[in-house]
């Protein structure tokens, strides 16, 4: 690092203060709520409430939805990215454009539109009946929740994988081809391994929100199916038991941290590579 840029590190001062004030302290506050009861006395019951049958059922259901959503997003994302690469749409920002644009239709309205599409006498079923086909009965089931979370979070899986794959030098792929690899082998031995950093960040961006998205479960699950997010939300806005809500949140956070620690293990290596210009 040169002398001229060494002083730069103080520029992050305001941000670090902000981090402490609005990231670190709020987390300490929620932890404090989680470990106390309404009288302020220490208790573990709020955390252990996750084991309560209603809560653990919602937690397991959340886990199923999140795992299913993550896997399906991966399975949808790779072909999509490869198609983009194949059709030479990878240049420019077309991919970003196509995936981000839907975010500009309001989040709640998007979900209401899916409600209308999927409901028993909704648009899709009307179409199916007109075509003389069997109507679907997915409204208010886990399937429609799954469609909702995949719809919402697919872009967060596609974009990092896409970035990782477009970063691969075309020469490396040609070298593999030159050495006798067919397109399947090229994917398995070159493209996929080199996309893993992107895949990892995709997983972290999709898994957590799909587990907790109470609005999606609310609107597409018909109120009967509850994610852990719904339980927490209700503790705050209906039961008004903030301590219990905080306890469940902290339990969720710990779970998320542990599972992310597994996926993110080698993240530091990736970050290190991006820092080369500072190495003088």
């Amino acid at each position: 690092m040169s002398n001229t840029t060494r002083g730069f590190k103080w520029l992050s001062g305001p941000y670090l203060l902000w981090c402490v004030g609005f990231t670190v302290i709020p987390l300490l506050v929620i932890v404090q709520y989680a470990f106390t009861d309404t009288t302020g006395a220490f208790t573990l019951s709020n955390i252990l409430a996750i084991l309560d049958p209603i809560h653990s059922k919602a937690f397991l259901f959340s886990l199923e939805i999140a795992l299913g959503c993550t896997v399906l997003c991966i399975l949808l994302a790779y072909p999509l990215v490869l198609v983009f690469r194949r059709l030479h749409l990878s240049r420019g920002k077309f991919m970003l454009f196509v995936l981000i644009l839907p975010m500009w239709m309001n989040f709640i309205l998007r979900l209401l539109a899916w409600q209308m599409l999927l409901s028993n006498n909704g648009i899709i079923n009307n179409l199916l009946i007109r075509l003389g086909l069997q109507p679907l009965a997915v409204a208010n089931t886990w399937i429609s929740i799954m469609i909702g979370v995949i719809y919402e979070y697919l872009p967060y899986m596609v974009l990092p994988i896409y970035n990782a794959i477009t970063d691969i030098d075309e020469g490396v792929i040609q070298a593999a081809q030159d050495l006798g690899a067919d397109s399947g082998t090229i994917f398995r031995k070159v493209i996929f391994p080199l996309s893993i950093p992107g895949l990892k960040s995709g997983i972290t961006m999709v898994f957590v929100p799909s587990m907790t998205s109470f609005v999606i479960a609310d609107l597409l699950g018909g109120g009967r199916l509850q994610l852990i997010g719904n339980i927490i939300e209700q503790e705050f806005n209906r039961s008004m038991d903030w301590h219990l809500g905080s306890g469940l949140s902290v339990a969720l956070m710990v779970f998320v941290l542990i599972s992310m620690a597994f996926t993110m293990k080698s993240e530091n290596v990736v970050e290190e590579e991006g820092r080369q210009w500072r190495v003088n």
């Binding site: 030098d169 020469g171 490396v172 040609q174 070298a175 593999a176 081809q177 030159d178 050495l179 006798g180 690899a181 067919d182 031995k189 070159v190 391994p193 080199l194």
Partner: peptide, 28 residues
């Protein structure tokens, strides 16, 4: 290319970044 018994050494080397030297050489 993968069916031809001739191999190319590319200008930019194009080594597989996720493999070590021995794995690169053993690829074919």
């Amino acid at each position: 290319p993968e069916k031809r018994n001739l191999h190319t050494v590319f200008q930019k080397y194009s080594l597989f970044p996720h493999y070590d030297v021995a794995e690169n050489i053993a690829f074919g």
